[in-house]
Nucleic acid binder design. Sequence first.
DNA 1: TTTCTTACA
DNA 2: TGTAAGAA
Length: 120
Amino acid sequence: MLIGELAERAGTSPRTLRYYEEHGLIHPSRDANGYRQYDDGELRVVHEIRTLLADGFGVDDIKPFVACLRAGNSAGHVCPDSAMVLRRRLAEVDGYLARLTEVQQRLRDQLKEIKCQMTP
DNA sequence: TTTCTTACA
DNA sequence: TGTAAGAA
């Protein structure tokens, strides 16, 4: 299929698909006219890329997932390389969450303090 | 009409 | 990532 069809089926834009290609995430073949040609399997790959991107993974972190999927696995996260990236990302998210919790507590304390002053 | 590349207020 | 321009 051509880039337009894949983009539509994957819920993205041709621009985004070309961006993934620039970063080595996908490598479509070319027709005689130079048009990119994608096989049906790329739809799953693109979906994998999109969800990973949405989860905050960087383009480089996504590569092992794509490779895992291309290797014939049912999911991109079942390979060792993917697991490694997964752990790192989880640690990152845990860190963000911890920091957010601190901010949340501080804001609550400050608000509580203000309310006390407003109610003599 | 669709895609391609390149470039950008 | 969007959008624009000029070519195929």
